[in-house]
């Protein structure tokens, strides 16, 4: 069922979503293996508090991790939203255009070739971009239609998947590093890994928002969009490249949390309706909220031990997604 909503309703809902993100970010800065009071968090972030244990935990553990969650969640969800719009496919996600397979292969190769210092983040980012660029270049030669992009993505992912299996077969030691990457998580993430990704994610998000009107016209269908003067093929390639940069930068420090890119846009479309700028913004906020919330749970559920966030995401997100689908099937909206 369609869920068109008025602008004022959407703005109210986006405001609530923003509040949720801020609240979760605040909790993420306070809780983990060790609970820190909000006052101590504030002092630590303002540079006060010197080098006491709480201030160091906040500055070097909780703050990078919270920033990482917000960035990775927002980027992956926004990437999924762009891909779903461009391919007009509500089941599309970054993995569909070769992000996961490209990043996975490069990380596996990096672990196999440089076991002492595998350069995982850089390898993941370059692999994701290479995977998507290969998909797009092949698709472009065959007309860059929605279907050729999806089919090419499936073929390239299959080849890269075989490559990962081959690397792990010949160099079994690479399996450990690759498994950590595949499950995904933000354990031990530092600002040194988050900041380079932020330099990619923030300008790319801005570029995607700037192309919101073009995306709206693209949603009218290829023929109508072209007849309105839109360069459909070029726009499709540009948008998919932006989506690849977002997802590549996110997986470079958070691993394969592909589920965020599928589930969040799917839910947010019902909240934001068919206008792309609202949809992208809602997806970015929703992704940030989901990943920050799941990461918080991963840290506190079995504290002082923690779960990989990818596991929490799948255990919580999967059933929630199924519940939404069942409600939809029952004719109810949410």
């Amino acid at each position: 069922m369609k869920s068109w909503r008025s602008s004022s309703t959407r703005i109210r809902e986006l405001t609530v979503l923003s509040g949720l993100v801020l609240a979760l970010a605040g909790l993420s800065l306070c809780f983990g293996g060790v609970a820190v009071s909000p006052a101590a968090v504030w002092r630590a972030l303002c540079g006060a508090g010197g080098s006491d244990a709480a201030a160091r935990i906040v500055r070097y553990v909780y703050f990078p991790r919270t920033c990482g969650c917000l960035l990775a969640g927002g980027a992956l969800a926004c990437s999924g939203a762009i891909i779903q719009n461009v391919l007009a496919n509500p089941l599309a996600a970054p993995n569909l255009i070769g992000v996961n397979a490209g990043a996975g292969l490069m990380v596996a190769l990096s672990c196999a070739l440089f076991p002492e210092k595998p350069c995982g983040p850089l390898a993941a980012f370059l692999g994701a971009l290479a995977g998507v660029l290969l998909v797009l270049s092949v698709a472009r030669r065959t007309g860059a239609s929605r279907f050729t992009v999806v089919l090419t993505g499936a073929a390239v992912s299959s080849i890269f998947g075989a490559g990962i299996d081959a690397v792990i077969t010949f160099v079994p030691e690479a399996l450990s590093g690759y498994s950590d990457f595949r499950v995904g998580g933000l354990f031990g993430v530092t600002m040194a890994r988050v900041i380079p990704a932020a330099w990619v994610i923030l300008p790319t998000l801005a570029a995607a928002f700037a192309l919101g009107s073009e995306m709206d016209v693209l949603m009218l269908g290829t023929d109508t969009a072209q007849s309105l003067g839109l360069r459909v093929r070029s726009l499709r390639l540009v948008l998919l490249t932006l989506a690849a940069a977002l997802a590549g930068a996110a997986v470079s420090f958070a691993g394969l949390l592909g589920f965020v890119g599928l589930i969040v846009p799917h839910i947010m479309r019902r909240l934001a309706g068919g206008e792309s700028r609202y949809f992208l913004l809602a997806s970015a906020l929703g992704g940030a909220a989901l990943l920050t919330g799941c990461d918080l749970l991963a840290r506190v559920l079995f504290a002082p031990y923690e779960l990989p966030v990818g596991i929490v995401l799948s255990f919580l997100g999967g059933p929630f997604f199924l519940w939404l689908l069942l409600r939809q099937r029952g004719g109810r909206t949410f």
């Binding site: 949603m219 023929d223 007849s227 309706g273």
Partner: peptide
């Protein structure tokens, strides 16, 4: 697009 407009045979119904 400023000279010729077109109503396509198959049209999407966007959520707007």
């Amino acid at each position: 697009a400023r000279r010729i407009s077109y109503l396509a045979q198959s049209r999407n119904v966007p959520d707007i």
